[in-house]
Structure formats: C-alpha cells, structure tokens
C-alpha cells in the first residue's frame, strides 16, 4: 500500500516531458502544461472575442452580461489603482485574471480524469505502456507557467518604469531611493545600499507572484491526490469540503495575481 501510494503520488506529480530521458536539459517541454494552457487560452480568447464581436448594446445576452461583469470588475480595479494612462494594463489584467482562473479551475477536475484519458490514448493509439504516460492537468501547478507570467509582468514593470521616467531617471531612482540625501559624499555612500534595496524589491516581485500561485495550486493538487488515496466511499468526506474551499482559492489566487500586477505596474510609473 505504502509503496503503491508513493508511486501513485509520484506518477501524478510527473510531467509529460517531451524528452523522457533523465538527462534532459533546458530544451525539453512540459507538453501537458503547454497544451492545457494553450487550450484554455483558446477557450478564453474564443469566448471573449465571440462576445465582443456579437456584443449587443440594446439587448445583451446572459453570456455577454457575465463577460461584462468580469470586465467591469477588472476595469474598476485598474481605474482605482492605476492612475496613469495605459492601453496595455487593463487588457493585461483581464487576461491574467481569466487565464489563471481557467488554469486553476483544472484543479476542479477529478485528479485521475485527464491522466487516465491520456494513458488510454497513449496505450491504445501509440502503443505506449500506460504506466509511462504522464499527465498533469493543472498548468499553474507548474513553476514554468507561473514564472512565465510573473517574469512577463517583471518585464512590464521595467518597461513601464523606463517609459514613465526615462532610462536615466529609472537608474537614478535605483541609486537614490529609498534613502535620499543632498550631501554628495552621503549620496555616493548610500547609492550601493539603495541599489541593493531596489534590486531586492524588484526581484522579490516576480518571485513572490509566481511562488504564491504555484504554492497554492501545487498544495491544492497534492491534497486532491492524497484524498484520492482514501477508500472510495470515504473520499467525499474530505474531497467535498476541499473542493468547495478550492473554488475560493482558485478565484482568489487569480484575483490576487491580477491585483498585484496592477499595483506593481502603478508603483512602476509613480515617482518615489
């Protein structure tokens, strides 16, 4: 039982890697993360673009009202927090919220559903041994997915800073804030200290963004896997409350990622 359980957990936590050999390097792809997130990207883009195309001013349907309420939510947050003018930030926030929500929502599928389907397809159509087919269905439980987004946001932060303050202004701020003095010698002494502070602050943003999301979803997935190890008649006792609680988590994490992105970008354009 114990070795079986460990095997089960390990199997569920292994990615479908394009290079199955243990000595794989950087140029290998997590096919499951990539494909699931791509499909969800199409779902998001498809639904929203369709609604945008068919949007009716006079007589909005239920789906349009739902989409509008999401846009309203994002728009209010952006307008409240981000005071500069930017055409990018609101669509960016909307994309982050919806895409992360959809990727998180994959956690609500039964833990064995997609892996078993993948195993069946691999076994029946490609003649693979079922045990060697791996599939992880939650892209946000993969650091590659979360870091891809947080590093993109990080680049946006730097880009927004440079655009708002100029390259010189940004460098100057890196050296003169948070500790500021008018004394020339003092300024030289404080410059490296400020630089270290700013660097830590800057680097902490993408790391905290991505690790918060990854941690929550990884833990959620792991707990679902552990619940799946219980006898089938007892699974609902823990599974139902955890799934209900997880509805909150997946929404909240998507929202937090979006909010922090807006906050970081608004900090980037404001002078210290």
């Amino acid at each position: 039982m114990a070795s079986n359980a460990i095997e089960y957990i390990n199997h569920h936590l292994t990615f479908w890697n394009s290079d199955p050999s243990p000595a794989r390097g950087f140029w290998s792809l997590h096919v499951d993360t990539f494909s699931v997130s791509l499909v969800l990207a199409f779902v998001f883009a498809g639904i929203f673009a369709m609604v945008a195309r068919r949007a009716s001013l006079e007589n909005p349907g239920k789906l349009q009202l739902f989409v509008e309420s999401i846009i309203e939510l994002v728009d209010t947050q952006v307008k409240e927090i981000f005071h500069a003018k930017s055409k990018v930030i609101a669509p960016l926030a909307l994309t982050i919220f919806c895409w992360i929500f959809l990727m998180n929502a994959m956690d609500m599928l039964p833990v064995d559903l997609l892996p078993n389907i993948a195993q069946w397809i691999g076994h029946s159509f490609f003649g693979l041994e079922a045990h060697h087919v791996y599939f992880r269905s939650v892209p946000t439980a993969d650091v590659n997915a979360t870091f891809a987004m947080s590093l993109s946001v990080f680049l946006c932060i730097i880009g927004f800073s440079i655009k708002a303050k100029g390259l010189g202004g940004w460098f100057k701020e890196l050296l003169t804030a948070p500790f500021h003095t008018h004394h020339p010698v003092g300024a030289i002494i404080l410059a490296p200290l400020n630089f270290i502070f700013q660097l830590v602050e800057l680097v902490a943003k993408p790391i905290s963004l991505s690790l918060r999301l990854f941690g929550n979803l990884y833990a959620g997935e792991l707990i679902f896997i552990l619940i799946a190890l219980l006898p089938w008649g007892a699974q609902w006792v823990l599974g139902a409350p955890w799934a209900i609680f997880h509805i909150l988590i997946i929404t909240l994490q998507a929202f937090v990622f979006m909010m922090l992105t807006i906050v970081y970008l608004s900090l980037a354009v404001e002078a210290h």
């Binding site: 990615f15 890697n17 794989r24 390097g25 950087f26 140029w27 290998s28 792809l29 997590h30 993360t33 990539f34 997130s37 791509l38 990207a41 998001f44 883009a45 929203f48 673009a49 609604v51 945008a52 195309r53 949007a55 989409v67 509008e68 846009i71 055409k87 990018v88 609101a90 669509p91 960016l92 909307l94 994309t95 895409w99 892209p139 993969d142 650091v143 590659n144 997915a145 870091f147 891809a148 987004m149 590093l151 993109s152």
Partner: peptide, 28 residues
C-alpha cells in the same frame, strides 16, 4: 524544473495579452 516550457508559456501569454488588447477589451 525550469525548461523551455517557460518560454512557450511566456509566448502564449504575450499573444493572449495582445489578442485581448486588440479584439476583446476595446470593443467591449
């Protein structure tokens, strides 16, 4: 384990943001 998935995800993300910026946000 960091690998090229990160790059792929970032590209997907960038395209998705561009798409939203172009075809979703302004009309709605």
């Amino acid at each position: 384990e960091f690998n090229v998935t990160l790059l792929g995800q970032a590209i997907t993300f960038a395209i998705l943001v561009w798409f939203t910026m172009k075809f979703v946000w302004p009309p709605l």
